[in-house]
């Protein structure tokens, strides 16, 4: 139960500071999760880093929910190594214009994580020093992790559907 009170503390402190901007707070499997908005995300991250001691950026990734108004969720995982506490922050952004400010000014390590997210989901991190594709070829043309793109290479000719029962 100790963790829950800790999470409560963080929640209270965040609400004091950011008010309405911290929404949809939940606690799946003991991990404090909340949603915020892209105009305050950098403030939230730096506040968490500087004031609340979440000094370690575990990961940045994205999730695609097609058909919604804000179809791409950028997910940050932070870690407070001293209190042994993790936190998850989500920002929902629009699929047509997926932009969000970069976190590279808060953590240098965010650089490649954001490049990967850009490569796979097409999220444009504004102010990123070097936003290029990282895993795929430059001429791929699509952001393959978006749900509308198939897993298999659509240009394959040697794989005939009849052999696979489709």
């Amino acid at each position: 139960m100790e963790e829950t009170t800790l999470n409560n503390d963080i929640h209270v402190k965040l609400t004091e500071k950011f008010g309405e901007k911290v929404t949809a707070v939940s606690e799946p499997y003991g991990l404090l999760t909340f949603v915020t908005y892209k105009d305050v995300i950098i403030n939230v991250l730096s506040h968490l880093k500087e004031e609340l001691k979440f000094n370690f950026l575990t990961d940045i990734t994205a999730v695609h929910y097609p058909g919604k108004e804000h179809g791409i969720a950028v997910v940050y995982h932070l870690h407070n190594m001293v209190e042994k506490q993790r936190i998850r922050i989500k920002v929902f952004i629009s699929e047509q214009n997926p932009t969000i400010p970069t976190a590279t000014n808060v953590w240098k390590g965010a650089n490649w994580m954001e490049r990967e997210t850009y490569d796979l989901f097409g999220v444009k991190f504004e102010g990123h020093p070097d936003l290029r594709r990282i895993l795929n070829m430059d001429d791929l043309g699509v952001h393959p992790m978006l749900k509308q793109y198939p897993l298999e290479d659509p240009n394959r000719v040697d794989k005939k559907d009849e052999f696979f029962g489709r």
Binding site: R133, I134, L135, N136, M137, P144, L151
Partner: peptide, 11 residues
Amino acid sequence: IGYIHRAFEKI
């Protein structure tokens, strides 16, 4: 990098 990108997350 990316020379053996195999798309684990998509698979």
